[in-house]
């Protein structure tokens, strides 16, 4: 198992390097000009100077190499130094990945935006899973009952309704018509007292609801299918024949075995939820990393877009890795060697 994990980790390094190169190539081939948003009164030679100061004068392989050094060496060292308050390997003149538009290090921008995204996206994922698992269990146990039929229909709807419609719909219902929740997520809110805590909860309800609907739709289907696979197995009959209570059979024997494939699906779904959050953040005006990406794309901010897209890619590769390894750990029948 350790051998397999190490091999997969080693293999993910060239994959990630290749992906970062593709992203870099796409951004580089594009006819986008970082000085395009500057005032038209700037003369062309000054414009050229600005481009050179952004590091655009050098050939593409050199710039890609420099981005790699900045992202893979300098940024981790910087995080290390900031965390421990040290200054190792010449921290003063260390080059960092700097945004064209804001002129601040990209990683700092991402660190600022991360908590909002993590709160909204992470919370919705947890809520979605917590709702989905009981629905899947009951649907499978009472197959073809009205509960199962309703669950199937609702999850079909959850698959089909895109978040930019369900989000707008809940805004119309709960904030325009009923006025229960604010439609714009206020990230400046600090939770210091009970009232601010309630405000925070109220502004999180709608985005979490929208994202959780999608998560629930997917995971409850997987849970149901996995439960159905296990309910007909011999060990379930044996457990019943031993005279165990139905609740023990269902919730201990069957549930634990059915959760194995579902957990890998949950791990695989994490990057997709972050991707979907790009739209949800736009609907509810949450200034998380999704919105940062949109701003970066619109402003032609190549370092920011490069870094953020690459972080998404890292998440996907890591989620795949974690899913495969967890499958092997949880299910001893699976052997990778």
């Amino acid at each position: 198992m350790l051998n397999y994990t190490l091999r997969r980790l080693m293999f993910s390094i060239p994959v990630l390097l290749f992906i970062s190169f593709i992203i870099f190539l796409i951004l580089d081939l594009a006819p986008s000009d970082p000085t395009g948003n500057l005032p038209l009164t700037i003369p062309p030679e000054v414009r050229e100077k600005i481009r050179e100061s952004l590091g655009l004068g050098q050939p593409m392989p050199v710039r890609y190499y420099k981005w790699c050094v900045q992202f893979f060496v300098n940024e981790p060292l910087n995080i290390w130094d900031q965390y421990w308050g040290t200054c190792s390997f010449g921290c003063e003149d260390r080059l960092r990945v700097v945004s064209y538009v804001t002129r601040s290090p990209v990683v700092d921008l991402i660190v600022q935006r991360m908590p909002q995204t993590l709160w909204v996206v992470g919370m919705s994922y947890v809520v979605g899973i917590l709702i989905a698992i009981p629905i899947g269990v009951i649907s499978a146990y009472k197959q073809y009952s009205w509960f199962d039929q309703t669950g199937t229909f609702v999850s079909m709807v959850g698959f089909s309704v895109p978040p930019f419609f369900s989000g707008v719909l809940v805004i119309i219902i709960f904030s325009v018509q009923l006025g229960w929740f604010p439609s714009i997520y206020d990230t400046t809110l600090k939770v210091v007292s009970w009232d601010t805590f309630m405000l925070q909860v109220r502004q999180m309800v709608m985005p979490v609801m929208v994202l959780a609907l999608q998560t629930t739709a997917q995971i409850s289907r997987f849970m149901r299918a996995s439960m159905l696979d296990n309910l007909n197995q011999d060990y379930v009959r044996t457990a019943r024949a031993k005279g165990m209570k139905e609740s023990v059979v269902l919730l201990v024997h069957v549930l634990r075995n059915s959760l194995i494939p579902v957990i890998t699906v949950i791990a695989l779904g994490i990057p997709a939820v972050f991707g979907g959050a790009i739209i949800t953040e736009q609907v509810f005006k949450v200034n998380g990393i999704g919105q940062l990406l949109i701003i970066g794309i619109q402003g032609g901010d190549a370092p920011l877009v490069q870094t953020l897209t690459f972080i998404f890619a890292v998440m996907i590769v890591m989620a795949n890795l974690v899913a495969d390894i967890m499958y092997g750990i949880l299910d001893p029948r699976i052997r990778y060697d």
């Binding site: 290749f18 594009a30 006819p31 991707g275 790009i278 897209t309 998404f312 890619a313």
Partner: peptide, 21 residues
């Protein structure tokens, strides 16, 4: 596998924004 590991939505947005003109 490589294409499956690409972050699709961000890349879509990037490509469309950059090449549409």
């Amino acid at each position: 596998d490589l294409f499956l590991a690409l972050p699709i939505l961000p890349l879509l947005l990037v490509i469309i924004m950059l090449f549409r003109d």
